[in-house]
Design a protein around this nucleic acid. Structure first.
Lengths: 180, 180
DNA sequence: GGGGTCATGTAATGTGTTACATGATTAG
DNA sequence: CTAATCATGTAACACATTACATGACCCC
C-alpha cells in the first residue's frame, strides 16, 4: 500500500529500454525525464547497488580505453516483473506541484501591487523559453508519425509538457492584461 | 545558491494575513495551499520554534475552555521584512512537477498497449473530479468582482489551478481519442 | 597539457513523511 | 458518552541536495 521510492522504477524503466551505466541514468534526468522528475548521481549510485542486491538488476564491467571501468547495468527477469507490476498498478495520487512563483502570488493580496506586473512578465519569459525548447525537441525527435509510434509514451508526455507550458503562458498573458 | 526552506515563507505569508496557531497553519495545507504545496504538522511545529528563535515570529498563549493551551503566532517586523524580501526576489527555478502517472506513461513504448486506455481513463476521472472541486471553490469564494480584488493572489492561483486541470483533462481526452 | 566530459563513489546536511504520544473540547 | 476535531509535540525513517573526493579519457 505504501507507494514509495519512485526513483527505483524510473531506473528499472530506463534499463528496460537499454543497458545503461549510472552515469547514463543520471544524464537522462538532465534530458527528457528532467521534465517530470529529478535525481542526482549521489542518489542513483547507492540505489543501483540496492537494486542489484535485491536481484532486480545486474551489471557487467566494461573497460573504456586503458583502464576506465564502467558498470553497465541491465534488468533481470525479476526487475522486469517489478517494473510491470508498478506500471499496471493504479495511480491515484495527484501530487501537488511545488511551484514557488504560485506560492508568492498567493500572498499578494492587492490587485494593484506594483510588483505584480514585473513578476508575471518574468515568469512569462521563463515559460515561453521553455515552451520553445520543448517544441524544438518535438520537431527534432518526433517529426514523422513512425517515430511517434515507436516511442509513444515519450511522445505523449512531450506533447503534455508543451500543452502545460502553453497553458501556463496563456494564463500569465491573460493575467497580465487584467493587471495593466 | 543555497536551496532555501520555502515552508518558512508560507508560514510567514499566512501569518501576515492573520494570527494563527500551528494547527491552523497545518489546516491551510489541506485547503487552498494544498493545491501548490504540502506540509504536515510534524514539520510545522518545529519550524515555528525555529522562526521564533530567529525573531521572525512571536506567540502568545490563549486558553480555550478550562485549560487547553493554544499558541497563537504572529509576525514580527523582522518577519514581515523577510517575507517582503522573498516576495520581491526573482523566481527563476521551474521545478519539475513529480507526476507519477506521466512517469509511467513514459515507459509505455507501444502505442497499442492495452493498458493505455484504462490508465488514461483513470487519470481523466481523477482530474475531472479535481476540476469540479476547484470550480466549486471558485464560485463559492470568488463569485463577485469585489471578493476577487480583495484577495487577488488567491483568486489568480485558483484560476490557474482550474486552467491547469482543464488542460490536463483536455490532453487526456485528446490522447484517448487517438488510442481508441 | 589543459579543459570538458566520462565515470564512480561517500559524507554531511536538509527536507518530508509516517508513526508514536498525549490530552482537551465540542457537537450530536 | 463517544466520536470527531482541536491542539501540540517528538522520533524514526525515507528521500533529496550539496559538497567532498578521485581518477580516466578525449579533443584541441
Amino acid at each position: 500500500m505504501v507507494q514509495k521510492n519512485k526513483l527505483q522504477y524510473i531506473i528499472l524503466g530506463l534499463l528496460s529500454e537499454h543497458e545503461l551505466t549510472g552515469y547514463d541514468i543520471a544524464k537522462a534526468f538532465t534530458a527528457d525525464i528532467g521534465e517530470f522528475w529529478n535525481a542526482n548521481h549521489s542518489q542513483i549510485y547507492p540505489l543501483l547497488k540496492r537494486l542489484e542486491t535485491a536481484g532486480l538488476i545486474t551489471h557487467q564491467l566494461s573497460i573504456t580505453g586503458e583502464k576506465l571501468e564502467k558498470k553497465v547495468y541491465s534488468l533481470t527477469a525479476a526487475g522486469q516483473a517489478q517494473l510491470q507490476e508498478w506500471l499496471h498498478e493504479p495511480t491515484t495520487e495527484l501530487t501537488a506541484s511545488k511551484d514557488e512563483f504560485i506560492l508568492k502570488l498567493y500572498f499578494i493580496q492587492d490587485a494593484h501591487d506594483p510588483s505584480l506586473q514585473p513578476m508575471l512578465t518574468e515568469q512569462l519569459l521563463l515559460h515561453q523559453a521553455k515552451l520553445v525548447h520543448l517544441q524544438k525537441q518535438m520537431t527534432r525527435k518526433f517529426a514523422d508519425k513512425a517515430s511517434q509510434l515507436a516511442n509513444y509514451g515519450h511522445y505523449l508526455i512531450l506533447q503534455h509538457a508543451i500543452d502545460r507550458e502553453q497553458g501556463y503562458a496563456d494564463w500569465l498573458t491573460a493575467t497580465l492584461k487584467n493587471v495593466d
